[in-house]
Nucleic acid binder design. Sequence first.
DNA 1: GTATCGATGATCT
DNA 2: GATCATCGATACC
Length: 189
Amino acid sequence: MTETFPPSFWREPVVALARALIGAELLVDGVGGIIVETEAYDVDDPASHSFGGLRVRNAAMFGPVGHAYVYRIYGIHWCLNLVGGERPGSAVLIRALQPTHGLEIMAARRGSSDPRAFCSGPGKLAQALNVTKALDGAALDQPPFHVAPGPAMEIMVGPRIGITKAAEQPWRFGRKGSLHLSRPFPRNG
DNA sequence: GTATCGATGATCT
DNA sequence: GATCATCGATACC
């Protein structure tokens, strides 16, 4: 058995949590890899699904920390968040992984033989790991999930992607130099 | 390399 | 009816 994160880890402020999750290992049924890109969504953040309070879709964000929040976007893709933060209603969007486990399964699910195409975006990652609504609200310290600490890494910071509200907040984090990011980070002046 | 656009459905106004 | 925390295909530089 590999070590897991203690409950206190998930109660860190959500922006710090998003940064701390870079380098962690994330597997679903033994398939996955190292987290290389995340975004923080806070409860009083206009870009967050929790903004405006508890509703049916976002219920998992207001549930216990250390659980998953999964939603459908654009009617097509699933996106995986890890619920955490100081206050209920915040979560970390997992945007990209460096694939390390189950490469053949990911290739089949993604219809691609290029590992860079497996998990380099939130929708791709969900497809590669077979994340669907069935995992919304599931605990991260129990199967099929496995989330474990990893080595410290050099981190890049930038604005979040694909949002129209609070777009200026630098709440996107990524592993410096990773070949598996959804998009490059803006150059740091 | 960047730009634009359609797919497709739940949620909200 | 409009809005999406996206992706892949296509067109063009």
